[in-house]
Amino acid sequence: MVTFLEYFNLGAAFFIIICMVLMLGRLLGGPTLYDRLLAVNSFGTKTIIFLCIFCFIINRPDGLDIALLYALMNFIATIAVLKFFNYRCLGVPLIKEQIEAEE
């Protein structure tokens, strides 16, 4: 019975890879910067799911820590890139009143 679940998980992992390739199409052909960022963010979410399923395929649950870290890193990377492209600098306060006061 273990073999059936293993085959099912393997198929699910391949399915996720197909979806990631579809997302690469939007990443390469997106007309604006924000389309590309959206594609990168969604690609990261699919990577997290793929890592979870992969841990079940190779039967080593330690790898879930990597997925947990990736979930946090994905969010922080998106915010950092957005902030950089908005202000061209990473050391800017994010609160509106502070920015207006500094200007």
Binding site: F15, I16, I18, C19, L22, M23, G25, R26, L38, A39, S42, K46, I49
Partner: peptide
């Protein structure tokens, strides 16, 4: 749902 989302983004 994941596949539908990918198709929708494209």
């Amino acid at each position: 749902f994941v596949l539908a989302g990918s198709i929708g983004v494209l």
